[in-house]
Design a protein around this nucleic acid. Structure first.
Lengths: 240, 240
DNA sequence: GTACAATGTCGAACAGTGTTCCAGAACGAC
DNA sequence: GTCGTTCTGGAACACTGTTCGACATTGTAC
């Protein structure tokens, strides 16, 4: 998976049955094959379909067999996430202002999450410490440094920006996963708009007045780009 | 629950067994009592403990009885969320710049989520259309209007700001729900820091260099305030 | 070459979930 | 009274993550 092994990543102290060393064995399965199968299931059938039984089935074995390689489902999910993150290729640094570089990289992440449906949901509220996640962090810090931002601002930004992208991708994946056709989605948006407009004007004057704006471009790139612009403008204002 | 009934909120088209009208009956349960019981369970024992059986138990009945009042667990969760949102009291508008007003309101929301553990997780990626959520939106639009922001910016901000607060609260609730003592959490942070520092400097120079900054104030108000500042500075830059 | 201990395999089982079914009970209207 | 409607709630279904333990398979030691 990587040229040289990283040290063991710290974990929230939970019951971890530590892997015991032992004599070499011919293994029918590999952690890699399991992670690949799990990612395949997530991509094809969604996160909820990624059950231990389903993954084992994909490998032609039983669920219990997986537990020889993976502590539990959560750990398997971590492997799956980092495996997908491996597709990220940091855009070549160099030309252009740091703001644009940053946006390009974050768009890449969003595209990744769009490609792997439900992965945003899975990786939300998880500090990614795998090989590939670290590579992404490394790139982000480097880019932010070029903006001449204070150290602590950079550190917080490394938290805030992925939080935003993951959160947006999470939301977007919900409608994608709901199996709605574009028409159904348009219907839903239209219904929501007329709902807003039908509210008692005496109590919700602003919601009624903004009904159109509130329901426009709910799903578009524009919404994502808006957040990106806000965040980066805000960060830029913190230089010096 | 409200002075006058709101129109029915639109829903993502899913199987909804529409409630049939019928002769009056003495009901042992009420939707309100069910929602209250469910919120109690979520607060006391966490979101995962909120099972239909557990909620029914709280009311001294069986799980099947709840389905006479609630379509499914998800709808019940919506009720629970909006019930909690009822605690929000919009700060008195008037004095101070809109930026500070906005921050004050959002801090209020964060405090609400801190009070009701796991509620952020439950309400994430959900468009809240209940009575109380609408009141919050109404207030937010009003405040943003005072900033003289363009219409579409206001609309997007109404999406972006709650997204941020909910996402942060979600993350924060995870560590809170993990039952970690402050010492354990400090240990975990320290472990993560030394993990970053132990990474191969050749491949992750920036992560190593920023190890201290990356792991500082992970849980504090400072992190929340930072994001707030970034967002609102970014929004302010979009006036005119 | 054989015996041994270690370790991967995986069917079965456990405790739990959301949800449905349906035999009853309880009541309003006639 | 009776009827019809509605709520009640135990039982059951199909599913989940995870553990157990008899079994199979191997590398090594003698």
């Amino acid at each position: 998976m990587s040229e040289d092994e990283l040290p063991a990543a710290p974990r929230i102290p939970t019951r971890t049955t530590s892997r015991r060393r032992g004599a070499p064995r011919v293994r029918a399965l590999t952690i890699d094959a399991i992670a690949a199968a799990a990612l395949r299931v997530v991509d094809d059938e969604g996160l909820d379909a990624m059950t231990m039984r389903r993954v084992a089935d994909e490998l032609g074995t039983g669920a219990a067999s997986l537990y020889a390689y993976v502590d539990n489902k959560d750990r398997l999910l971590e492997l799956v996430i980092d495996r997908a993150l491996g597709e990220l290729e940091p855009p070549p640094e160099g030309d252009g202002p740091w703001q644009e570089q940053l946006k390009a990289g974050l768009r890449e992440v969003r595209a990744l999450f769009a490609r792997h449906r439900d992965l945003a949901r899975a990786s939300f509220a998880r500090i990614p410490l795998g090989e590939n996640a670290l590579r992404a962090s490394e790139w982000m810090i480097a880019t932010l440094r070029r903006g001449g931002l204070p150290t602590q601002v950079i550190a917080y930004a490394c938290d805030l920006l992925p939080l935003y992208v993951t959160a947006i991708a999470y939301e977007e994946s919900i409608y994608a996963g709901e199996q709605l056709s574009p028409e159904q989605l348009a219907d839903y948006v239209a219904e929501m708009r007329s709902y807003f407009e039908s509210l008692p004007r005496s109590r919700f004057p602003n919601v009624v007045a903004f009904a159109a704006a509130l329901t426009s471009g709910a799903q578009s790139d524009e919404r994502f780009e808006f957040g990106l612009d806000v965040l980066i403008a805000g960060l830029a204002s913190m230089a010096d």
